[in-house]
Nucleic acid binder design. Structure first.
Lengths: 224, 224
DNA sequence: GCCTACTCATCGAACGCTCGTTAAGCTACT
DNA sequence: AGTAGCTTAACGAGCGTTCGATGAGTAGGC
């Protein structure tokens, strides 16, 4: 269906893999320009020039990390939205759930996606910004649909959308998987607050998680 | 009252002033490590060494910008909270209003405060992180007070607090003073959404801006 | 009233180091 | 034989920082 194949990754040499892991960790923590390729290579346990075997330069390595992270996030959103059906409230809950989960489970990649795009070279940055806009539109669509259908009664849908996005993204900065918070509960609370801001009244508000995600969405694995 | 004097700044030489302005602009747009001190000096119209007349190095320049921005933000918060009295709802509205206004009016400084702290050297970074925690506690205090008093009925005060902070901070990234949005209206909507999430019912919800800020807070100038 | 001493604000030139990048070569497998 | 997956060694550019000098302003002693 999509242009991206389903299985073919895996066969990445260990050096390549550890290079990506080291670069992702360092870029996310300290920022693209603060990290030298010598530090990345050392952390990955390979030589400086291994990087140039896989990428034409430092910027291309960053671009690869960003696009790969974005691919992953988009795939998760696609899956969640597909399960959600056509009800705007459920569609929005699916996007919020997928986003919060990605920010929490892949916080390193999330920090990269959110903070390091400005280090890309202009052409690549423009391509990436387009993908970011698409991601932001995933929230806009169900909100506008719900407002048009009259089930979301907020007078300020744009402000609500921006607030929901900001809150979901912020998860990458504070959530710790070893903390007291269960991720499922966090998603549920985020959706609850989103509904509150939208002025949405779920039909059976007492059913735990009725509008957050399906069981399949909660304990997710990429391959069955 | 405070240890900071009221008038003595002003007498900063033109070179110093333009150095700070250039550094702030460049650091905010491209990040600390992406900008060389030669670029800053060139943009400021002074020589490289002028920087070393005022600061012991590049990192100290960043630290000065961050602390000065934080001083400014804290002073605005102090003023707004002092005007708000003791009602938790009004106190929270004052903090949200001061924050949103600062993020909108001083978006360059805000981006610096939010994104560039990680470039500080460890000791200075720790000092700065403490100030950030203090700023975050300005939201916690009125929320907890309102919950304790029973006027905020949300079951999730921590999530609401994080969402309010994230939404207020995000203003620095999207608000444009030449856009269609009036800043006063934006503040009002942000406070409205905060109240919604908190489950707070203002006594006269139709009074425009009744709970956002006083007229003095809306059209503010530092000196009378 | 003027010389002296000193500080402030700024400059140009250089230093040593680290950066991203390149070139050339070496295994080990297919 | 050829390619995939690296290696060591070097290059030039640009980095943050340092040094010493210069001119303008200014306060104090005579």
């Amino acid at each position: 269906m999509l242009s991206r194949p389903e299985v073919p990754v895996a066969a990445r040499p260990a050096g390549h893999q550890s290079l990506l892991a080291a670069a992702s960790a360092q870029f996310a923590e300290r920022g693209f320009h603060a990290v030298s390729i010598r530090e990345i290579a050392a952390a990955a346990g390979v030589s400086l020039s291994a990087l140039y075997h896989y990428y034409p330069g430092k910027h291309a390595l960053l671009a690869a990390l960003l696009h790969e992270g974005m691919d992953d996030y988009q795939a998760r959103c696609d899956e969640a939205v597909a399960e959600a059906g056509h009800d705007p409230a459920r569609r929005l809950a699916a996007v919020v759930g997928a986003t919060v989960r990605y920010r929490a489970e892949r916080s390193e990649a999330s920090l990269l996606l959110m903070n390091e795009a400005r280090a890309l070279e202009p052409a690549e940055r423009e391509r990436y910004r387009t993908r970011q806009r698409e991601a932001s539109n995933r929230f806009r669509e169900p909100i506008d649909a719900g407002v048009a259908a009259g089930i979301f009664t907020t007078p300020y849908p744009d402000d609500v959308r921006r607030t929901i996005i900001a809150a979901s993204n912020a998860v990458a900065q504070w959530y710790r998987p070893d903390g007291p918070d269960s991720l499922d509960d966090l998603v549920e609370r985020q959706v609850f607050l989103a509904y509150r801001m939208l002025g949405y009244e779920p039909r059976n508000p007492n059913a735990r998680g009725a509008h957050t995600a399906t069981a399949a969405g909660r304990s997710r694995r990429r391959s069955p």
